[in-house]
């Protein structure tokens, strides 16, 4: 399987082409991928199949993407989502 390079929180990382943005974030070592807008607690991908919406991230500048449902693309920017991004 070929690899693609994505940018997770400003850091370049090479991941397999079949990976999702959420998977790439985990592979990059992010322990949390968003902050709960209700409590401010750190949260991370839970179901990886589009059910739980815990993996909401900012992808290529677009907030609230379900990162587990977005396949990686060369040069994709993947960023943590804090409550601030949601309301931008």
């Amino acid at each position: 399987m070929s690899n693609v390079t994505v940018n997770v929180e400003g850091k370049a990382i090479s991941v397999p082409a079949g990976e999702s943005a959420a998977g790439a974030a985990l592979a990059a070592g992010l322990t949390h991928t968003r902050v709960s807008p209700v409590t401010g607690e750190p949260r991370a991908p839970y179901c990886m199949m589009g059910v739980c919406f815990e993996c909401l991230m900012v992808i290529d500048g677009v907030p609230s993407r379900q990162a587990c449902m977005v396949p990686v693309r060369e040069g994709m920017r993947i960023e943590r989502q804090t409550a601030v991004e949601v309301w931008k």
């Binding site: 991941v15 998977g23 607690e41 949260r43 179901c47």
Partner: peptide
């Protein structure tokens, strides 16, 4: 979908479903 059965601490990063881990096993 997997049946969600809440336990104390299940919102902590590093707690996932078995299905989630299996998806990663299958894809990469």
């Amino acid at each position: 979908i997997e049946r969600a059965v809440p336990i104390p601490g299940w919102t902590l990063p590093g707690v996932m479903t078995v299905g989630a881990a299996q998806i990663r096993l299958k894809t990469i």
